[in-house]
């Protein structure tokens, strides 16, 4: 399509330059009439009809149903709530990172509770909006293992630019094993991480965040059960390092304008470090 467009552009501009600069003298009117008829009418009509038929033929197959695995993704200001709904087995909740099996057509159910977002993984296919009150679906297939980046493409407020996610495509068997392992909560932390857990719960983080296997069961913010296993934090805003976790907790609004999470600027550094250690340990 791009090459065809380039050829058309060169031809049109070529005629324009020829008629104005190279040979500005009059040509026969008949030449002009032929140009209008063939260049302005016949050629575009035929080419556009062919393109349209091609595009229409493509449309139904791009919306073929998936092969069983369904992942519900809810876009929320400004992060992604992810729920795996395997055909067999219980649902698994996660956030801001999506794992998919390679070579399988996975069906995404896309919703939003607040404003319109859009779900797009450029390397895997087209985007679909997440519209409050509607549920859209999108079917994607990762051909190769790897990590792909996805992003919100519909303007959704102050931190629209900071609403991305990683898609990790792994082999089918590994995926099934991974999904099954999610059913059991991560093992309890030790050392500094254990103190971090205590602080996490004491400061009330559990009111908004859920960590399976603890009393933290909030559903307002992202599920943190396997937080440590993710490569990024803050919806793919920062690399997931202990320093960044501490920074994010201390100055949330500065890193992510108008995020719902309040900043905790008064937490002592060592407490932040402990919390970061705890969250990092959740794998």
């Amino acid at each position: 399509m791009a090459i065809g467009a380039g050829v058309v552009w060169c031809l049109v501009l070529g005629v324009a330059v020829y008629a104005t600069r190279i040979r500005p003298d009059p040509h026969e009117e008949a030449v002009g009439w032929r140009l209008i008829l063939w260049g302005g009418v016949v050629f575009p009509t035929v080419v556009l009809a062919a393109l349209l038929v091609f595009g229409l033929g493509l449309m139904p197959q791009l919306r073929e149903p998936g092969e069983g695995l369904r992942i519900d993704v809810s876009g929320e200001q400004f992060w992604w709530r992810v729920t795996y709904r395997p055909a067999d087995g219980p649902a698994v909740v996660s956030a801001n990172e999506i794992r998919v099996p390679v070579g399988e057509r996975v069906e995404f159910g896309l919703t939003s509770p607040d404003v319109i977002h859009a779900f797009w993984i450029p390397a895997l296919g087209g985007k679909v909006d997440m519209i409050p009150g509607r549920e859209n679906r999108l079917v994607l297939k990762a051909e190769k293992p790897g990590t792909y980046r996805g992003a919100c493409t519909e303007f959704c407020g102050a931190s629209h630019a900071l609403m991305a996610f990683d898609v990790v495509a792994i082999e089918k068997a590994a995926f099934s094993a991974w999904l099954a392992a999610q059913a059991t909560p991560p093992s309890p932390p030790e050392g500094e991480a254990a103190r971090g857990r205590e602080l996490f719960l004491r400061h009330g983080c559990g009111a908004c965040h859920r960590v399976a296997g603890t009393e933290a069961a909030g559903e307002v913010g992202p599920d943190l059960t396997r937080f440590g296993a993710r490569a990024t934090l803050g919806a793919a805003t920062l690399a997931n390092t202990p320093d960044n976790i501490a920074r994010f907790v201390r100055e949330t609004g500065a890193l992510k304008p108008r995020a719902k999470m309040p900043a905790y600027p008064n937490l002592p550094g060592e407490e932040l470090a402990a919390i970061a250690a705890y969250l990092g340990s959740l794998k």
Binding site: A49, L52, L56, M59, P60
Partner: peptide, 13 residues
Amino acid sequence: FVALPAVFIGDCR
């Protein structure tokens, strides 16, 4: 042109 979609698309997908 506008009638073509009805030729190619048979359901509400």
